Computed example of a mutant assay.
Amino acid sequence: MNDHDKPLVLIVDDDLFMLDFIFDALSETCNVITAENGKTALLLAQQQHPKLVLADVKMPEMDGYELCRQIKDDFDISDTPVLFLSALDGIEDRLQGFDVGGEDFVLKPANPRVLQAKVAHVLQLIEERQQLKSQAQYATNTAMLAMVSMSETGLLIEGLKYFNNCSAPLDLAKALINALALFEVESVVELILPNDESLAVNARGPASALEVSIMHHMSSMDRITQFKSRMSITYPHSRAFISNMPVHDPDRCGRLRDNLAILVEFTEYRLEALNIMLQAKQRDITIAATVKSLTMALSNIDEKQRNGRASAAIILNSVTARIEASLVGLQLTERQETSFIDIVRYGLEDVSNTLHADADFQDQLSQAIKALQNTITKT
């Protein structure tokens, strides 16, 4: 084992012979430093942070128990285990050692192998405790992170609810501003509308020209671009500029990047759906206006055709009467008169039949117009 890898052990004893004895017993497996009294030992412990302290119980000025108590009262070295060296093995001595936070007793005169075994055992316990402490700290941090993530997920879900009742782009922009504010960030939002029109707002109202220019500049970069505490999130028709990212907390900053990007992405999809709805609504208005105009035109045609057919019937009857009246003065034979009247009558009947055939079509047209009028009235 290299000296660098050996654990540092502090030995405290006012008996120089015992100090040398323990030094020799542990020097092969440990880096050993020594002190001849409790005050010096406490100072060394505070400066060099040994893995283990072996302290004689009986020392002048500051005995081993008092040294142990002061080590445990010092926050920086309170985890340092203390192994007592004592010729006394009574229950009261052990209880006193327990009360001040000692780890174990090594009886004097110490057997080198026993001493080595006890030191190795304590050092092993220290290693296991540190591992357990690290695992416990990791578990605690993981649990805290999970709690924070659950809390932020709740904020994300709450923020998405803001988009439910948005019926116009301005409503959608304000909803995104409010959703981002749940994460304690200040933002500017821009929506790109049809015909390349732009709607840019912040929490106070319309965005400033400088804010808009910054967003336009950063929109040409990556989808998510961060410069110190400033961050932009850019989608084809939805953009957000965050001015106060918590760069002092990298973990939270990373989570915010994900959550805020989800909100802007959702805005992109909602804006697309809103545009489709508005386009459909405008198309419906155009179709309704066209149908109404067409219905009025067909209604006028229907009325004129009906009036024309009635006028044609009157004219035919008048023509028939005048022809019959004029035949009296022509001095035709009865046969000639009958033949002429038959020709005229058959021609007039053909015209009348044609008008009747058109009447069926006219009725169908009237029914279609009536149906269109009912549809317009309902809408």
Rank of each mutant, 00 (worst) to 15 (best):
I301Q: 04
G308W: 00
E268C: 05
F75G: 08
A25Q: 00
E337C: 15
Y65S: 02
N37V: 10
G308F: 10
C68N: 06
R322S: 08
A273T: 13
M62N: 05
E211W: 04
D24F: 15
Y346P: 01
L132R: 11
Q135V: 15
A146C: 04
A368Y: 14
L19W: 03
E186M: 06
N307W: 04
D249G: 05
K39M: 12
I71D: 03
I285D: 06
L85Q: 03
E349R: 14
A136E: 12
M1C: 12
M18Q: 14
E272V: 09
E103F: 09
T320Q: 11
L316S: 06
E334T: 12
G97T: 11
T142S: 15
Q336H: 13
N164S: 06
V264D: 00
S299R: 09
A289V: 11
L330A: 11
T354N: 10
A136F: 09
L298K: 03
I287G: 02
N353P: 05
L199V: 06
D99F: 08
A45M: 12
D56W: 02
A41F: 08
A312C: 06
K72I: 09
N141F: 10
P109A: 11
A87F: 04
A310C: 10
Y65C: 07
H356L: 13
G308C: 08
K51Y: 07
M150H: 07
N195P: 01
H217M: 10
S311I: 08
L372S: 12
M62E: 04
R306K: 13
M277H: 05
S151D: 14
A179L: 07
D104Y: 07
V328I: 15
E197T: 12
R309D: 07
P7Q: 07
V247M: 09
V212G: 00
F241S: 00
R283Y: 02
T290G: 05
N300Q: 06
A280N: 09
L278G: 00
D73A: 15
